[in-house]
Amino acid sequence: MKLLDEQVLPPTDATWADQLIDSLTGDLTSKLGSEGVLLFPSAPAVAPYHYSLLLRPYNFAYWGVFNAIKFPAAQVPLGLNSDGLPVGIQVVAAPENDALALAVAEHLGKLFGGFVPPCKVLD
Rank of each mutant, 00 (worst) to 15 (best):
L20Y: 11
P11D: 09
L39C: 02
Y49M: 10
L24M: 15
L85R: 05
P77L: 04
E6L: 15
F40P: 09
Y51Q: 12
V91P: 05
Q19S: 12
L24A: 15
L20D: 12
K70D: 13
F40W: 15
G36C: 01
C119A: 12
G79K: 02
V65A: 12
L80E: 01
V46S: 13
I21M: 10
S42I: 13
L102E: 00
C119N: 07
D13L: 05
Q19D: 15
L100C: 02
L38W: 09
S23E: 15
Y62A: 11
I89C: 09
S23M: 13
A68T: 13
A14Y: 10
P72L: 09
A45C: 14
L24H: 05
P48A: 07
A101C: 06
Y62T: 07
G36P: 07
Q90R: 02
K110W: 00
Y62H: 09
S23D: 15
Q90P: 01
A17C: 11
Q90T: 00
A93M: 06
G36R: 02
L55G: 14
P11W: 05
A61L: 15
V46L: 04
S23L: 15
S82P: 05
F66G: 01
S34R: 13
T25I: 02
G114S: 03
S52Q: 11
L4W: 14
P86G: 08
F66N: 03
L85W: 04
E96Y: 15
A73K: 06
D22G: 13
S34N: 14
A105D: 02
P44W: 03
V116P: 03
F115I: 06
Y62M: 11
L4M: 08
H50K: 08
P117E: 14
L38H: 08
Y49S: 14
N97F: 00
G33F: 02
F40Q: 08
S82F: 13
V91A: 04
C119P: 00
Y49V: 13
E106V: 00
D5R: 14
F60H: 13
A73G: 12
K120M: 05
L38C: 07
N67R: 10
I69P: 08
L122R: 14
V76W: 03
E35G: 10
Y62R: 04
S30A: 15
T15F: 13
Y58P: 01
G79N: 04
G64F: 01
F40E: 01
N81L: 03
V116Q: 15
I69L: 13
S23P: 02
Y51V: 12
P11Y: 11
D5Q: 12
V104E: 02
R56S: 14
A101S: 05
H50A: 10
A105K: 01
P44Q: 08
T25K: 13
L39D: 07
K110I: 00
L102N: 04
S42H: 06
I89M: 14
Y62S: 07
L9P: 02
N59C: 10
G64K: 00
F112T: 02
